[in-house]
Design a protein around this nucleic acid. Structure first.
Lengths: 225, 225
DNA sequence: CGTCAATTTGACGGCTATCAAAGTACGTGG
DNA sequence: CCACGTACTTTGATAGCCGTCAAATTGACG
C-alpha cells in the first residue's frame, strides 16, 4: 500500500500501476518466463552477463557481494513482487541466491521488452528501482549509525512490514548468518541482540528459531528511531 | 566515461545521452532554472514538499538524514552532473546542504517537464538513479564490512575517480566531520586512519588538510578490495 | 600577531568481533 | 516411537577496534 502512496503525484516514468508486492503479478502477454530455483541455489553470480533481470513471484532471494577475503554483505532480501538483477552495465555486480525455494519471473533486458506493453513494465521497473534506492538509503543509516540492538529492531520491523504478516508474529525466512551479513554484524552479535530483545520483553522467541513475535512495537520503533 | 560504458546496451529508459558529469549541461530549452547556494546553506530539509529535484552544476552538495538523537548519516556527496532530491513520495526524505558554494539546476517534478524534451531529461534522471543505486550498494559494503582504514582508502579512491583530478592529488571539498558521517565513523577515527595511511606512505598530506596526494594507488586499491 | 575553528593526538572505555564450546531443533535411521 | 547425528543457534571468555572525552596543535584569517 505504501508503494501506491509513495508514487502518487509522480510523472509517468516514476509512477507504477503495480500497487504492491502481494497483488497478482501482471504477467499477461509479457515475454517474461518462469523459473523455479531450490533453496540455496545460485541464480546468477558477480561477473555473469546481465542479460536478464528477475521478479520474485514466491520465496525469498538474497543479493550479495564479497570482499577478496570472503567478507560478505547482503545488500537486500527480495520478497515477492520485488525486482532484482537489473544492472546498468553489461555484467551483474552481485551474486544472487535463493534463500528459500523461489519462483521467479525472468525478463530479458531488451529495449522492446520494456518499451512494449504500453510501458507498464518499464514503469514498474523504474518504481522498483526507486524503492530499491530508498531501501538502500535506509540501510546505509542502519549500517553507518545504529547499534546492534537498533539494527535488529529495525530489521524485524522492516521485515514485518514487508511480509505484511497481519499479526505481530513473523517467520524469518533467513538464517542468523544471513541476517548478520545483511546487518553488518557477526552471527554471535545477532544472536546476542535478539536474545537481549527477548529478555527485555520487546519480542518473544518460540522454540522454532526462525519465528519472532513482536511484543512491543512502540519500543521497537523507538529503537529504530 | 564509465557512465557511458555502464549504460551501453541498455534499453532507452536506462541509457542516457549524458556521458559524464563534466560535460556541458544540456539545459537548452528546458524548464529548469538556476539557483546558487552559499556554502553550508540548506537546500531542502527532510519533510519538505518534494516539488523539485536538482542537478549540480558546480560545487558540492551533501544529502543526509538524522536519527532522533542527532546521529547523522550522509548518504552521498553530489558532484557536478549529479542529480539529487528526487523522491518517490511527496516529501523529501533527506536534508540537503551545500558543502561548498554551489550552482544548481532546479527541475520541477512534473509529468510534462520529464515527458517533454524527447524524454532526454527523463532518461538522464533514470540513469542518474541507477548510478545512485550503484553507489549506495557500494557504500553498503563499505559501511557493513570494511575497517576504518579500508573505508578511508575506498573513499579517497572514489573521490579521486569522481572528481577526475588528472593526477594523484585531490582537494577534498568536505570537512573531516562530513567524511566521518559519510563513512560511519567519528571525526577522530577518520583523522587517525588518514594519519596512519600517511605514515604507511600510501598518501601524503600537504599542510592544507583538505588536500590529499595518493602515493600508492595499488596499495589503496588493495585496501578497497 | 592574535583569535578561532578545524584537526590531530592522547587516554581510556565499551561495543562488537573473535575464538571456543555447549545447547537445541530437526531429520534420519533403527 | 525413539536414539542419534548434524547444522544452526546460543552462550561464554577474551581481545581489539573504534568511540568517547579531553587537550594540544595546526592552519586560516583578520
Amino acid at each position: 500500500m505504501q508503494t501506491a502512496l509513495a508514487t502518487a503525484g509522480l510523472p509517468p516514468v516514476f509512477s507504477t500501476s503495480l500497487p504492491g508486492r502481494a497483488l497478482p503479478l501482471s504477467t499477461e502477454a509479457r515475454p517474461g518466463h518462469r523459473r523455479t530455483v531450490a533453496a540455496e541455489a545460485e541464480i546468477f553470480a558477480e561477473g555473469d552477463r546481465a542479460g536478464s533481470f528477475y521478479k520474485v513471484v514466491s520465496g525469498v532471494v538474497r543479493t550479495y557481494r564479497l570482499l577478496a577475503d570472503g567478507r560478505r554483505q547482503i545488500d537486500a532480501f527480495h520478497l515477492p513482487g520485488d525486482i532484482f538483477g537489473l544492472e546498468a552495465g553489461a555484467e551483474h555486480r552481485f551474486n544472487a541466491e535463493a534463500v528459500t525455494e523461489a519462483q521467479l519471473e525472468v525478463h530479458r533486458r531488451e529495449p522492446r521488452a520494456l518499451a512494449g506493453d504500453d510501458g507498464a513494465l518499464a514503469r514498474e521497473v523504474v518504481a522498483s528501482m526507486m524503492r530499491g534506492l530508498e531501501r538502500a538509503q535506509d540501510h546505509m543509516m542502519l549500517l553507518g549509525r545504529k547499534s546492534a540492538r537498533e539494527r535488529i529492531a529495525t530489521f524485524l520491523l522492516t521485515m514485518a512490514r514487508r511480509m505484511a504478516c497481519g499479526g505481530t508474529a513473523l517467520e524469518l525466512p533467513m538464517s542468523r548468518t544471513d541476517m548478520a551479513d545483511h546487518l553488518g554484524l557477526t552471527v554471535e552479535s545477532v544472536s546476542r541482540a535478539v536474545t537481549q530483545l527477548e529478555r527485555d520483553g520487546l519480542i518473544a522467541l518460540p522454540p522454532n528459531r526462525r519465528m519472532v513475535v513482536l511484543r512491543d512495537m512502540v519500543a521497537l520503533a523507538d529503537l529504530s528511531e
